[in-house]
Simulated scan of single mutants.
Amino acid sequence: MNKPPSIHAMIVAAGRGSRFGASIAKQYTTLQDQTLLQHSLARLGRSTYIDKCLLVIAADDNTAQQLEFAIPIYYAVGGEERWQSVKAGVESIIQTGANDSDLVLIHDAARPAVPVADIDQVIEAAMREPYGAILATPVADTLKTSHTKPVSIEEGSSTSPYAKRTIDRSNIWQAQTPQVFRLGQLRRVLNYVSEHQLSITDEASAFEHLELPIRLVSGSRQNIKLTYPDDAVLLSAILTIQS
């Protein structure tokens, strides 16, 4: 019988969260007496698959070491872009003696409400895949493309957006984290991103550039990401309901 792959958890917390507009890094925003980072690590620690986590932080981050976490952590220093931080984390995991067939679970510090059942579900799905699996939700809202000036306006100018076209959402999914990948394959696609200077927004999109299939696992809509200040109100309510 083949041995199950080891699971290496990683939280990427090297970003500044510029869209959030706070004076501190977004992952250190406090909800219910704990930072987002502490909440997110505690969620990972509730999974039976995870017993420790690699925390990728900025070189000048002096905050993480002052916090107490629910599970043991070790550190790597991230880069300017998210993929560079993930790549640094991958190299750190490889240095521990991990195998190419092992799984790397990558989670955003700003998603503190991910249900533990979803964490386990995406790990178990990735175990059956050659490349990996990610949590995602089918898009339910009507989606529009926009432009800044309708054709019918002949005079004046406007910088406000106007609806241009409705997008068919039947095959549109909103990506979440955790995202779980085979270690060797993740290293390969991140090297490809580096060599070709690609712009990616998540690790799954790196696999898409090479047309490598990543399984979509339907996740909970409670697994929202703190991106804008208004999100904090909703997240606080979700955490209260879940506790």
Rank of each mutant, 00 (worst) to 15 (best):
M1N: 08
K3P: 10
S6L: 10
I7F: 09
A9S: 13
M10S: 00
V12T: 14
V12N: 03
A14F: 06
G17Y: 08
G21S: 07
I24Y: 11
A25Y: 00
K26V: 15
Q27K: 12
Q27E: 13
T29N: 03
L31A: 07
L31I: 15
Q34F: 00
T35F: 05
S40K: 04
L44K: 06
G45A: 01
T48N: 09
I50K: 09
D51I: 01
D51G: 06
C53S: 10
C53R: 00
L55S: 06
V56W: 01
V56E: 01
D61A: 05
D61W: 11
N62P: 07
Q66W: 00
L67Y: 02
E68S: 14
E68H: 13
A70Q: 06
P72T: 02
I73C: 09
I73Q: 02
G78D: 04
E80C: 05
E81F: 14
R82M: 13
Q84F: 10
S85A: 08
V86L: 12
K87Q: 13
V90M: 08
E91G: 02
I94E: 03
T96Q: 14
G97W: 05
A98C: 08
N99M: 06
I106D: 00
I106L: 08
I106Q: 01
H107R: 05
H107W: 05
D108A: 11
A109N: 05
A113H: 01
P115Q: 05
P115D: 02
A117Q: 10
A117H: 08
D120N: 15
D120P: 10
V122C: 06
I123N: 04
E124A: 10
A126R: 07
M127E: 09
E129N: 14
E129L: 14
P130S: 12
Y131S: 02
G132D: 01
A136D: 01
P138Q: 06
P138V: 01
A140W: 00
D141K: 13
D141Y: 11
S146T: 15
H147N: 15
I153E: 03
I153M: 07
E154Y: 09
E155V: 12
S157R: 14
T159Q: 11
S160D: 13
S160H: 11
Y162F: 15
K164S: 08
T166P: 02
D168A: 04
R169T: 15
S170Y: 02
S170W: 05
N171S: 13
W173A: 01
Q176I: 03
T177W: 03
Q179Y: 06
F181S: 05
F181H: 13
Q185G: 04
R188E: 03
R188N: 05
R188A: 04
S194E: 15
E195Y: 07
L198G: 00
L198K: 09
I200D: 00
D202Y: 10
D202F: 07
A206V: 11
F207Y: 10
E208H: 12
E211H: 13
L212A: 08
L212F: 12
L212S: 09
R215V: 09
R215I: 03
R215E: 14
S218I: 15
G219C: 04
S220H: 11
R221N: 05
Q222K: 10
Q222W: 14
N223M: 04
I224K: 02
I224Q: 04
I238M: 04
T240Y: 14
T240L: 08
Q242I: 09
